[in-house]
Design a protein around this nucleic acid. Structure first.
Length: 423
RNA sequence: GGAGAGAUGGCAGAGUGGUCUAUUGCGGCGGUCUUGAAAACCGUUGACCUUCACGGGUCCGGGGGUUCGAAUCCCUCUCUCUCCGCCA
């Protein structure tokens, strides 16, 4: 969430920047500011009343000690009156704060100044591309046929045991999964990230912390009996490690890498987008997370972008990087790069990673801060990205590397798979 | 699942109704001494809201209550630990 201070100091900036995300903030900002004013004056009045009540209580104690109990009586009455008054004030304050908060969380994060204006994915800016689109010929099969041909991923079995979108990986398919996970984790570790293995279920507070709740509840699987949610990404448990944490300046940056299963209900998805491995309810992903000082976060974003690029290059897949336009960005992001690999048989670009700087938007909600040597606290900047999500990488590897003899494994991965071809 | 104990500042750990403005130690920071460091000694030490400022207020796991006054008493929830049981 945005800081109310910013709204107070520069409401016009907020309104102008949010136009880039096609968000009309005027009315909301105005309401918030007027509630904020009421909140502050109520707070001041309540503080004064409490201070008075505290003074009286102290002198009552003094009188008892001096044996002047009778004189204390009328003071007791007075204090009791003040007490009822503050109780009402406190209720008002709670209500106003809650109302204000409900409005503040409706404001998206401000996009970075470099974010292109636009409505949809068509307006995204291609900032980098690499690799040749392979000619796999007219006989090329899409991955959902290849997995059957080589019997490496079984959707029907998943349907039987669980349901749609929960496939079984089998034989070389399972080994390829395991190899990719290890490859991504090791590359992350080499780049200075600390590996974590997080819980796959989180409590409600954590789901709020990263913004899945309250509005994206329908996208998560839940375990209502225990009040848990299955994580849609490792970002949730990993980022929540740092909820309510104040770092010492010298303990930053934090760089974490984590593999996890991800569970997404994907309610409302349909069509060619969801065919085969393109969209699953359970999938595997390696996630990188950074926590940075404010002035370093954009440099960190570029670092992460380079890291993800190097992964895809080592897998020898043709890819491009797009900078998302205002209309295509997520609610919480200030700047996002999407990575898309080309799927030769489907003849389309598949999103395999999304790397974002959230600046202080998540940190403000989570109260994640760092203390400078001078003793001042600042909100940290948080960043995360997939490095990488497996299913679409697997789809692209299968489709792009199909040959008459089988599917070849890129060199960088052979050490991990233990085989060079799926046949 | 059964029984018991507990939750206090970065950490350890006192405090059972009124100078708590939370004792003390460790750690951190600053200083004295030293060529430098260690030791010793001295000082200092959290978060949040509000105020131009002085200041005021809130916070002892969360919520509620009793009282003029609550870290302290009562209710409730959550979590942790120990022992037993079960178990990869």
């Amino acid at each position: 969430m945005l800081q109310v201070n910013l709204l107070r100091e520069n409401p016009q900036l907020v309104i102008d920047r949010l136009k880039v995300k096609n968000f009309r903030a005027e009315e909301l900002v105005e309401k918030i500011l007027s509630l904020d004013e009421v909140r502050r004056s109520t707070q001041t009045k309540m503080d004064e009343t409490l201070a008075e009540a505290n003074r009286i209580a102290k002198s009552v104690g003094q009188m008892y000690k001096e044996g002047k109990a009778s004189e204390a009586e009328h003071l007791k009455e007075q204090s009791a009156m003040l007490k009822t008054k503050t109780r009402d004030m406190n209720e008002d304050l709670d209500r106003i704060t809650r109302e204000m908060n409900d409005l503040v969380v409706q404001l998206p994060n401000l996009p970075h100044v470099s974010v292109p204006v636009g409505r949809s994915a068509e307006d995204n800016e291609i900032v980098f591309s690499h690799g040749q689109i392979p000619d796999v010929g007219e006989q090329a099969l899409p991955h959902w046929d290849l997995i059957k041909k080589y019997n490496i991923i079984d959707f029907d079995l998943g349907n039987k045991v669980t349901g749609a979108g929960f496939p079984f990986y089998r034989g070389k398919g399972a080994r390829l999964q395991r190899a990719l996970i290890n490859f991504f984790l090791n590359e992350g570790i080499s780049a200075g990230y600390l590996e974590y293995q997080p819980p796959l279920l989180v409590n409600e507070a954590s789901a709020y912390g990263t913004g899945q709740l309250p509005d994206k509840e329908g996208q998560m699987y839940g375990v209502p009996v225990d009040g848990f949610y299955l994580i849609p990404t490792a970002e949730v448990p990993i980022t929540n490690i740092y909820r309510d944490v104040i770092f010492r300046e010298e303990d930053l940056p934090v760089k974490n890498v984590a593999y996890s299963n991800c569970f997404r209900r994907e309610a409302g998805s349909w069509g060619a987008d969801v065919r085969g491995l393109n969209r699953l309810h359970q999938f595997d992903k390696v996630e990188i997370v950074q926590i940075r000082k404010q002035e370093e976060s954009y440099q960190a974003l570029e670092e992460m972008r380079d890291h993800v690029s190097s992964l895809i290059q080592k897998l020898e897949l043709p890819f491009r990087i797009v900078k998302l336009c205002g209309g295509d960005m997520s609610f919480t992001s200030a700047l996002t790069y999407d990575f898309e690999v080309f799927s030769a048989a489907q003849k389309r670009w598949l999103e395999v990673s999304s790397v974002s700087n959230f600046e202080s938007f998540q940190a403000n909600r989570m109260k994640l801060r760092y203390k400078t040597k001078e003793g001042k606290n600042f909100l940290a900047h948080t960043l995360n990205g997939s490095a990488l999500a497996l299913p679409r990488i697997v789809a692209a590897l299968l489709e792009n590397n199909q040959t008459g003899k089988g599917i070849t494994i890129p060199k960088a991965l052979v050490g991990y798979t233990g085989f060079e071809i799926i046949d």
